[in-house]
C-alpha cells in the first residue's frame, strides 16, 4: 500500500514520465497489491521449506556438509522406524474413524427436523472450536494415572483399571481417541453441508425403484458426496499427519518413544536436544505424504475450476 502511494508520488514529482505510465497500468497496480502476500510467502514459507532441505544435509554443529548422512543415520536407528510406523498408524486410524463418525453423525443430524438441527450441530462442533492444547489438557486429566475419571467408572462397573497413558498400547489408543474427538466434528460439518446439497428427487427416484436405505446411501448419497468426502479426507490426512499439539500435551511421545510422531520427535530432537539438522531431517519425512495429498487436492480444484 505505502509502496503504491510513495512510488506514484515520486513519479508525479519527476513529471509525467514513463515510470508513471507503468505505475498506472492495471497489472502493475495488481502486482503491487499482491506484493505483501508474495513477499510473505517467499520469506516465511517457501524459503524456510527449502532451507529445511539444506539444513538436513549439515552435521550437528552445522559446520560441515554431510550430504545424506543424517538420512543414513536415521535409517539405521530402530527408533526412527518405530516413529514412521506410529505416525502412519496414528494418521490412518484417526482419519478413518473421523470420517466414519463424521458420516454417521451427519446422517443422524440430517434425519431430525430442520429446526432442531442448528442446536445439535452447534453442540457437536464444540470440540473443534476449543483450542486443541486446552482440550487435550482436560483429556490428560481424564486419563490421570491415579485420579482417572474413566477408571472410576470402570471400577464401579467391575472392570479393571486401565493405565491410559502409561502402557504403550493404551497410550497409542488414547492419542488416536483424542485426535478423533477433536477432528470428527469437522467431518460432520463438511458432510452435513454436502448432504444438504443432494437433490431430494434422487432419493425419491431410488425409493420408487425399491432401494433399501443401505442402497440409497451406497448408490445415491456416497456418489453425490464423493468430491467432498475426498477433499475432506485429504485435508484431514495432512493435518493429522503433521499433528503436534495432541501428542505433545498428552504423552510428550511417551512412554519411552511409543507415541512419538514425526512432528513431536522433530521437536524433541531439533529444539530440545539442539540437533537442528537432524530435527529438520525428521520433519522432512512428512513431505512425501503431504505432496501426494496436495497433488490430489490441486487436481480436484483445477478440475472444478474448469467446470465453472
Amino acid at each position: 500500500m505505502a509502496d503504491i502511494v510513495a512510488s506514484s508520488a515520486a513519479a508525479r514529482a519527476s513529471g509525467r514520465t514513463s515510470l508513471h505510465k507503468v505505475m498506472q497500468r492495471k497489472s502493475t497496480i495488481a502486482f503491487l497489491m499482491a506484493l505483501p502476500l508474495i513477499l510473505m510467502i517467499f520469506i516465511l514459507v517457501a524459503y524456510p521449506a527449502g532451507y529445511a532441505i539444506w539444513l538436513s544435509m549439515l552435521n550437528k554443529s552445522m559446520t560441515k556438509f554431510v550430504g545424506f548422512g543424517n538420512f543414513d543415520f536415521l535409517f539405521k536407528r530402530a527408533t526412527f522406524w518405530e516413529i514412521v510406523l506410529q505416525s502412519c498408524i496414528f494418521a490412518i486410524t484417526a482419519v478413518i474413524f473421523k470420517a466414519i463418525i463424521g458420516f454417521v453423525v451427519a446422517h443422524f443430524v440430517n434425519n431430525i427436523p430442520t429446526k432442531g438441527q442448528r442446536k445439535w450441530r452447534g453442540m457437536l462442533l464444540v470440540p473443534w472450536v476449543i483450542p486443541a492444547a486446552m482440550s487435550t489438557l482436560s483429556w490428560l486429566w481424564l486419563f490421570d494415572p491415579s485420579y482417572s475419571a474413566f477408571n472410576w467408572i470402570f471400577v464401579h462397573l467391575g472392570l479393571p483399571k486401565i493405565s491410559w497413558l502409561g502402557e504403550a498400547g493404551w497410550a497409542r489408543f488414547s492419542v488416536i481417541l483424542v485426535n478423533v474427538w477433536i477432528g470428527a466434528p469437522f467431518f460432520l460439518i463438511m458432510y452435513l453441508a454436502a448432504l444438504k446439497s443432494v437433490p431430494e428427487q434422487l432419493y425419491e427416484a431410488a425409493s420408487i425403484d425399491g432401494a433399501t436405505w443401505w442402497q440409497r446411501i451406497w448408490f445415491v448419497t456416497l456418489p453425490m458426496m464423493r468430491n467432498i468426502i475426498a477433499i475432506t479426507i485429504l485435508f484431514s490426512t495432512i493435518v493429522t499427519f503433521a499433528n503436534f499439539d495432541i501428542v505433545r500435551v498428552l504423552t510428550a511421545g511417551g512412554p519411552l518413544t511409543a507415541t512419538h510422531v514425526f512432528a513431536t520427535w522433530a521437536f524433541k530432537v531439533g529444539i530440545e536436544s539442539g540437533d537442528i539438522p537432524l530435527g529438520a531431517t525428521v520433519s522432512l519425512f512428512m513431505v512425501p505424504i503431504l505432496a501426494v495429498a496436495a497433488t490430489f487436492i490441486l487436481r480436484d480444484i483445477s478440475k472444478r475450476g474448469s467446470e465453472v
Partner: peptide, 19 residues
C-alpha cells in the same frame, strides 16, 4: 497460495528457528 496453506507449521519451525 493454496499450496502454502497445505504446508504445516511442523515442517517450518526448525528452519524458522535457525533463520
Amino acid at each position: 497460495v493454496f499450496l502454502t496453506y497445505l504446508i504445516p507449521d511442523t515442517l517450518l519451525f526448525i528452519p524458522l528457528f535457525k533463520m
